[in-house]
């Protein structure tokens, strides 16, 4: 989906400062939100791709307002509510109680975890199909537009590059995030010249990015 998460090439964000003394978790809740975010995939019966899509589905304000661990927290809540493990509003009600504002917990809802086939642990898969492309082949990133999950960033769409390497095959996030099957595919690292992506005045650079076979077409 064309959401706030698809940040490659956006302008206006300012500069980047490195804090050499940054702790792993700056605040206690960061660590708790991280741990519960990681566990929310198993607890909601979903998967890593659904989690990433959960991040993308957050309202842009919520995506940004409380930073990285803020979105992990919001995403954990989204997945747990979608799967009926928690009721809508349960976290807010509990938080208000913790702040000394008595409110009733909402009634529990029926569990509604997704039912789908999994091909094993992790994301890498062995497949028998011959790869459609080889290193050195010229390929174009398809003009894919979807309201769902995809790992093809917008800045690559329609651009032409060269296959640099074949990587291990992996399940397709675009369908796995929606529990519509793993559809494992070959994955390629594709190289693009900066001028192809950003125009003739672009800074000289090479961009290498990992793309699933169905994102690509021969030129």
């Amino acid at each position: 989906m064309d959401g706030i998460h698809d940040m490659g090439g956006m302008q206006g964000w300012g500069t980047v400062a490195i804090d050499p003394d940054e702790p792993v978790f700056r605040e206690r809740w960061h660590g708790r939100a991280f741990a519960m975010g990681a566990m929310s995939m198993g607890l909601s019966g979903t998967n890593l791709d659904a989690f990433r899509h959960g991040l993308e589905r957050l309202h842009p304000y919520d995506y940004l307002a409380d930073g990285y661990y803020g979105r992990w927290l919001a995403c954990a809540e989204t997945l747990l509510v979608d799967s009926g493990v928690l009721s809508p509003g349960a976290v807010e009600a509990r938080a208000r109680n913790l702040m000394g504002e008595p409110v009733d917990d909402p009634a529990d809802v029926e569990e509604n975890k997704p039912v789908y086939e999994r091909g094993g642990a992790g994301s890498l898969r062995e497949i028998d199909d011959e790869p459609a492309f080889s290193p050195g082949d010229r390929v174009r990133a398809k003009d894919i537009r979807t309201g769902g999950h995809t790992r093809m960033p917008g800045y690559i769409r329609g651009r032409t590059g060269t296959v640099h390497a074949l990587r291990p095959a992996a399940l397709l996030p675009d369908t796995n995030a929606h529990f519509e099957g793993e559809n494992p595919q070959h994955v390629y690292t594709v190289e693009f010249d900066s001028a192809e992506l950003w125009g003739p005045d672009a800074e000289a650079a090479t961009l290498r990015i990992d793309l699933f076979e169905s994102y690509l077409e021969a030129t």
């Binding site: 708790r32 919520d62 307002a65 809540e77 509990r94 938080a95």
Partner: peptide
């Protein structure tokens, strides 16, 4: 959750504790 209310947001530390 996708809550677009930008003025009455609960602090993330409390929401974390609630979760």
């Amino acid at each position: 959750m996708a809550d677009t209310n930008t003025t009455d947001r609960l602090p993330p530390a409390v929401r974390t504790e609630a979760l």
